[in-house]
Amino acid sequence: MEKLVKSEQEWRAHLTEDEFYVCRQKGTERAFTGEYCDEKAVGSYVCRCCGQALFESETKYDSGSGWPSFYSPVAEEAVGVNRDVSHGMVREEVVCARCDAHLGHVFPDGPQPTGLRYCINSLSLRLDDSTE
Rank of each mutant, 00 (worst) to 15 (best):
E39N: 13
L15P: 02
G43Y: 14
S65T: 14
E17I: 12
P108I: 08
R126K: 15
R98K: 15
V106G: 03
G66E: 00
Q52T: 13
C96A: 11
A75Y: 03
Y118L: 08
E39G: 01
L116M: 14
E19Q: 15
V22I: 13
E132W: 01
P113N: 08
A97M: 11
H105D: 06
L123R: 09
S69L: 00
D62M: 01
C96R: 08
L116A: 07
A41I: 04
F32Y: 13
L116S: 06
V90H: 06
R24F: 03
Q9C: 03
A41K: 15
R126Q: 13
G27T: 10
S7F: 05
A97H: 08
L125Q: 12
D129N: 13
V94W: 10
V74I: 15
G51E: 05
N121V: 11
S86F: 02
W11A: 09
M1N: 10
V106R: 05
P68W: 04
C47N: 11
C23H: 09
Y21I: 02
K26I: 02
P108E: 06
G34P: 11
S124M: 10
V74A: 05
E2T: 14
W67N: 00
R98L: 11
E77S: 13
R48G: 06
K3N: 07
R12V: 12
Y118H: 13
A31K: 14
V42D: 14
S122Y: 09
E39P: 00
A101C: 09
Y61P: 02
E132T: 10
T114H: 03
C119G: 07
E2Q: 11
S44T: 15
S124Q: 08
V85C: 02
D62N: 08
R12W: 01
E8M: 10
L116I: 05
Q112H: 09
F107K: 05
F70A: 01
C37W: 04
T114P: 04
V95C: 12
D84C: 07
A31L: 03
L116F: 09
T59G: 05
G115A: 07
K3A: 13
E93A: 12
D129M: 03
A41E: 14
S63P: 01
N121E: 09
S63I: 04
R12H: 07
D128A: 05
F70N: 01
S86Y: 04
A97D: 11
E93D: 03
E39I: 05
T28I: 10
V106F: 06
D129Q: 10
E10H: 11
A41H: 12
P108M: 05
N82K: 14
V5S: 08
T16S: 15
R98W: 04
F55Q: 07
Y71G: 04
S122W: 07
Y21R: 15
Y61A: 06
G64D: 01
E10K: 12
K6P: 00
Y21W: 08
R83A: 12
P73N: 09
W11E: 03
E56V: 14
S63R: 02
E76T: 13
T28K: 08
R126S: 05
L4W: 00
